[in-house]
């Protein structure tokens, strides 16, 4: 568990981060979202003390980050950044093994860990181990960057706009990968993004920052349905709010008994995709299947009811 306790950063008397408190549960993803200059990156960088807080405290599993030397702290916290920051003169294996090397792991242990991570990121170890970053595609470089951040099995992984430099298709795939790997490893991740869509897709919790303050911290559904301020409402995108909300839930939540015409959709399909499918095929209901077994149907009315905001 990560506890952020009234942490602030002042630059020339002006607060870049203003008394932010927040608790992050182990094995969850927290997405910190805000416009540029909102203090989200400064908040993240205070956690591994790349920026020293002016006041307040961060505790990781109860231990204050101030009680350990900076570099020791950073070796225990993974850190991945937008332009991946891979060392151009190191091979993929050496890049991933950087922190374990700093920590004095044995060569064999490092090699095993590198291969394990490459497998996890679906990159053939024999094929990629000895390549240089310049020989990889943007998506591969980004994966190696995340693998490197995870190499020493850190208590916490900090990510600063990790997918910012990727094009939309590769980006979607990278987000899915991150979700999958986080589930597999049970990692605790704090991720900074300016993209509310990404925050909603990835975060178990979303923290919205504005002008150095934490304006709302809750589940994606809470953020969309009950935005704490006009600013948050704007961030979750006015007219697109109902659609974003629908994207959070699978069809399985609304299944009812009954019959519907046409091709069946899988129970894991999001309500947003199902709505889109209904509109496109001119249906009022779709049949739902799971593992080839028919579960029933979902109607447009049910989807619409789910998308309604509070009155």
């Amino acid at each position: 568990m990560i506890e952020i306790d009234r942490i602030s950063k002042l630059y020339d008397g002006a607060a870049a981060v203003d008394a932010v408190s927040m608790t992050v549960e182990t094995a969850t993803i927290t997405a910190i979202v805000g416009t540029s200059g909102s203090g989200k990156t400064t908040l993240l960088r205070m956690i591994n003390r790349l920026v020293e807080p002016s006041s307040g405290e961060v505790r990781i599993n109860g231990e204050s980050t101030r009680s350990v030397p900076k570099n020791t702290l950073r070796r225990r916290i993974g850190y991945a950044i937008q332009s991946h920051g891979l060392f151009p003169h190191y091979t993929v294996a050496r890049n991933i093994g950087t922190v374990p090397t700093l920590l004095g792991w044995s060569k064999a242990a490092i090699r095993a860990r590198v291969d394990e991570l490459l497998e996890l990121f679906s990159m053939e170890p024999e094929h990629f181990r000895d390549r240089y970053p310049a020989e990889l595609s943007g998506g591969q470089q980004q994966r190696v960057g995340v693998a490197r951040a995870l190499a020493s099995r850190p208590d916490l992984l900090l990510m600063d706009e990790p997918f910012g430099a990727l094009d939309p298709i590769i980006r979607a795939r990278a987000q899915e990968d991150l979700r999958r790997i986080q589930r597999t490893l049970g990692s605790t991740i704090m991720l900074v993004t300016h993209d509310m869509e990404e925050a909603i897709q990835l975060g178990d919790r979303v923290a919205v920052m504005d002008a150095g303050r934490l304006v709302q911290h809750g589940t994606p559904a809470e953020i969309i349905q009950r935005p704490a301020s006009d600013f948050v409402a704007d961030m979750v995108g006015g007219v697109e709010r109902p659609l974003r909300l629908l994207s959070l839930f699978p069809l399985s939540e609304l299944v009812e008994q009954g019959h519907a015409e046409g091709d069946a959709l899988d129970a894991d399909t999001s309500l947003r995709d199902a709505l889109s499918n209904c509109l496109w095929t001119g249906r009022n209901a779709v049949p739902v299947v799971k593992d080839g077994v028919a579960l029933g149907r979902v109607t447009m009315d049910a989807i619409r009811a789910r998308a309604e905001g509070p009155r």
């Binding site: 790349l50 900076k70 225990r76 850190y79 700093l102 900090l158």
Partner: peptide, 18 residues
């Protein structure tokens, strides 16, 4: 040296000498 490589090195806990 690319700024991102230095940022990453700092974030990984390399000392100035390293």
């Amino acid at each position: 040296t690319p700024a991102s490589a230095i940022e990453a090195a700092r974030g990984m806990g390399m000392s100035a000498g390293q």
